[in-house]
Amino acid sequence: MTTSARDEVLGRIRTALGRTGTEAPQPSPVPRDYRTSLGEEPGAPGLLDLLVDRLVDYKATVHRCAPDAVGATVAAALAERGARRLAAPSGLPAGWLAGADVETVTDGATPDGGTLSVATLDAVDGVVTGCAVAVAQTGTIVLDSSPVCGRRALTLVPDYHLIVVRADQVVGSVPEALPRLDPDRPLTWVSGPSATSDIELDRVEGVHGPRTLVVVLVEG
């Protein structure tokens, strides 16, 4: 009988490591002397300013507003864009699009999930979602396929993505974000609109993902 590739590769690794028996080494300690936190509570004013600074640096548009002004702020952003037909995930809070003069198509409102075809998503003027976590230091927003974020295609195919970020979702650094995320969910970490550095290593915004990223940051 021939050895399976699996057994052979695992056997080669053991040989390479000079293993003789079935010893199972314990994990070696890792020196984690780097910063595991920026030392600020989620949503602290300094973190919000940092997030905005980093988002703008990577060419996202940011609007800051109070909780009771989300609908009006979203509506104004969509009007400025001239968006008429929008896609939304099933769990989008009702108030977020209440003030907007748009037609909304909702994805995943039924248990079989993806109700919107790729062609439909390609034809809408944009998509509005929430997020799971935002990382101030890197200007990153994480989407996690929950009802307020929607499935991944929803935020990928449309050319315009507006994300509503609540202040309490904003943490300082990457080490503070990971424990808040569930690895069993598909995750998309977004830092600015799609971009490429492939031509002379200069960053150019706007390739295959949404070319416009708008963030509404809800404070207080």
């Binding site: 099933s90 769990g91 995943g108 999930g113 996690d144 396929s145 929950s146 929607g150």
Partner: peptide, 15 residues
């Protein structure tokens, strides 16, 4: 194989 989580479409294919 990724699935959505929560809401009416809980467990629907995502990708």
């Amino acid at each position: 194989a990724p699935r959505t989580s929560g809401g009416t479409a809980d467990g629907a294919p995502d990708g």
